[in-house]
Design a protein around this nucleic acid. Structure first.
Lengths: 343, 343
DNA sequence: TTGTACGCGTTATCAT
DNA sequence: ATGATAACGCGTACAA
């Protein structure tokens, strides 16, 4: 090594391989115009030395960091963490690292904050999680700042290069049909908050199923929550006050579904004998409450993995990068919270 | 601006303030040897220009990134995410960002992986989460690589500068005493996995309480789990098979406690009438199962915040940085899973 | 196909 | 107290 500081630099490699820095640089960046023999010689030196390009220097020269940002606005912990796992899975073995950035959806400074963040860190790209992913201004901002981005959502929010989505509407329709096939005719909906695309898509799927079956859907059978356990309890109680009472409830996520289960128990309503419940997400809570919850498994990890691959695929995959899917299927997971209605 | 690329650089500031780059650099880095007048002039230009130092260039020159790493080995999602929140809270408003690094505790490559990671990214420092924080070799590695670190754990693992801990033993003793005061004499323990300091501390606290009360603790009343819901179920069933059956159970974390509740329901054992249960962590699941779980609130966010402040305090706080606490108290949260034993 | 010279934006050295 | 100049390690014109 030239210096004393430990890591070998590109100069060390160049000297030992008896070529110029530039040639080493070409090897690293897989330049096609290179003598095969030269490349091998350089690669051998690189291996022998254990040389790894310095990310800081690359970032400075390229005006772009080898970091993938994760922008989210704190939906629920399990989802965020699963997304992180998916992204890190896709990034493992590459030079990329993940940097996490929570934002406040309700703050008027949100866009400015993100702008500052992106300008400063010069990220390679960002993955944007729902629900903030539905914000078009944010996507435009990324575009403007020349920062790649992929949005994850419950519907096709953007063109295929900038989006990974799930088929919420379709799968909720299936879930609701499962309830209908069991014989339920009075089915309540605990829907997600206004302005969330996921809430909207899931409601549409719910309505699709009821419409196809010729079942009526009075406004009173729909109660809104905001994806938290507590609002699930409240919404359920509103539904329980109805007469006749619904014999089944679809909740737009598991937390609210857990709230419904909780509220039912408080009232002495037995699940699933008196009331069937289906949730959405398949977070751990779904399997851990009593009775275990029938729910929709949302392919979080796969979506995140696909998003990250879409972002860095060109770089790490070279020519061989497989195109990543833009729509990933959810599936119904049947457990014990659904039964035929009481006779 | 000199260039066209948007952000002003240190050169722009120097030119407009009619000083050298180095002087600007001194202003930025709060060098004490600076004419007050010069400093103010430069600061004004900096404000007017909206100049912000380029982190990539700084990283290269300083051989140190302005990034704080979070090293964890996937304990549970809620904890990891809360830790992230705590760290980001401490970092917000500073130039630091957080980069997340999960590792595999069981892999023989773990240390090598971390070494590569730290050498490459040249992090400013890392926060290490339990249980991997208990690994002394990892701390030594950080030391060797000249990377600051703070370990978070259930006991004092290191000197005050390198550690933030909770008082698990003490608070579990209190929790157990709560059970004893209710009249329970046959109390089971679902303990955490072997080799985890948290498991050990909590068990010690449990034993302390029983010993003080003069209660016997036959080996059969202790069942081991590995902090997952499923092992909680298994351990509970082992305890339920005992005759006489314990009238109360302390579980070393909430997930296992939820498993105990689940197992009890499967057997028709009513909580808390037939069985009292206390958990540990106060994750959301504790409040969302039925009955709501009495548990120990573990100050995760505060610990993470303190850890991050300890890491970057010297830099961002200047002289005024308050020393961060090294031991944070947990507290018992009483809900509905505890009652006097059946008569 | 390969090399030379310079730029990226900052900090450090050593003068003055 | 301040400034000229050289690192820091890599990428890119442009030349050879």
């Amino acid at each position: 090594m030239s210096g004393k500081s430990g890591q070998p630099t590109i100069n060390d490699v160049a000297r030992l391989a008896e070529v110029s820095k530039k040639t080493v640089s070409r090897v690293i960046n897989r330049s096609p115009l290179l003598n095969e023999e030269t490349r091998e010689r350089v690669e051998k030196v690189i291996r022998d030395l254990g040389y790894v390009p310095n990310p800081q220097a690359r970032a400075l020269a390229l005006r772009r960091n080898f970091l993938v940002g994760l922008i989210h606005d704190n939906p629920n912990a399990q989802m965020v963490l699963n997304m992180q796992h998916g992204i890190l899975e896709a990034l493992s073995g590459t030079d990329f690292e993940m940097i996490v950035r929570p934002v406040d959806r309700t703050s008027p400074m949100m866009l400015q904050d993100v702008r500052t963040f992106l300008e400063r860190q010069r990220l390679f790209g960002v993955v944007i999680l729902p629900p903030i992913s539905e914000n078009d201004a944010l996507a435009d901002l990324c575009e403007e700042l020349n920062c790649r981005y992929v949005r994850i959502g419950s519907a096709e929010l953007d063109d295929a290069d900038h989006m990974v989505a799930s088929n919420d509407r379709e799968v909720v329709r299936e879930a609701t049909e499962h309830l209908i096939h069991q014989g339920h005719k009075l089915i309540g909906l605990v829907e997600g908050p206004d302005g969330f695309r996921s809430a909207q898509e899931r409601r549409l799927g719910f309505e699709d199923a009821l419409k196809s079956a010729g079942l009526p859907l009075p406004r009173s059978l729909i109660a809104r929550g905001n994806y938290t356990f507590e609002t699930g309890v409240t919404a359920a109680n509103r539904l329980f006050d109805l007469s006749p009472r619904p014999t089944a409830i679809f909740a737009s996520n598991d937390e609210m579904a857990a709230g419904v289960v909780f509220a039912a128990r408080e009232r002495g309503i037995i699940v699933p004998d008196d009331l069937s419940i289906i949730g959405f997400d398949d977070t751990p809570i779904a399997a851990h409450i009593w009775p275990p919850l029938t729910t929709v498994r949302w392919p979080i990890v796969s979506m995140a993995r696909a998003a990250a691959r879409k972002l860095v695929g060109d770089i790490v995959g070279g020519e061989s990068a497989e195109p990543q899917p833009s729509v990933l299927p959810s599936m119904l997971v049947k457990r014990s919270s659904v039964a035929p209605p009481p006779s």
